[in-house]
Amino acid sequence: MDLFTIVFYFLAIITLGAGAVVVFSRNIIHAAFALLFAFFGVAGLYVLLMADFIAITQLMIYVGGILVLVLFGVMLTSQVLDVQMKSGTIQTFPAVLVVSALAGTLVGIFWSTPWKTTAAAPMEVTAAKIGEMLLTSYLLPFEIASVVLLAALIGAALIARREKNA
């Protein structure tokens, strides 16, 4: 087993293990914090795939943004100081149904896809290319996305400020 494989399995175990904690932990806070390791593992996998830009973006957005948001959300719910905050299971039957359907589809695709395996491509500078493409070929989607985000920002600010007038 070469180094690459070892690191791959290591990262895969981290990702899956953390994911399992997220799903099965009865403690919501633990579940939220376990997300950190899941995201981290995924970022590591991206690095192994020589996608450094995506890996770092993954960290930046998921760990620095979304996870913080999730944690704030969890902590701002009631009984925050109670360490024993629990998550429960409800509607087991429909959940099982949906999950097994999803899993079946995924496994089916997994088996039926002819996977191409090639040697790892050498590290490439992707950031500059991504930047160029965003401002040339994909300018329209890029701009639309920024307009949407701007609208969301303004909307959020508006909602947050409404209290004072009322």
């Binding site: 806070i29 914090f33 950190l36 450094d52 830009f53 770092i56 973006t57 960290l59 930046m60 760990v63 620095g64 943004g65 996870l67 913080v68 944690l71 902590m75 500078v125 950031a127 500059a128």
Partner: peptide, 24 residues
């Protein structure tokens, strides 16, 4: 790496989570 500064900004968010964890 070519994304040096970007990388530093990204990993520093790890500390944020750590601080939150310690406080909670």
């Amino acid at each position: 790496i070519d994304l040096g500064v970007f990388y530093i900004l990204a990993v520093s968010s790890l500390a944020v989570i750590g601080l939150m964890m310690s406080g909670w």
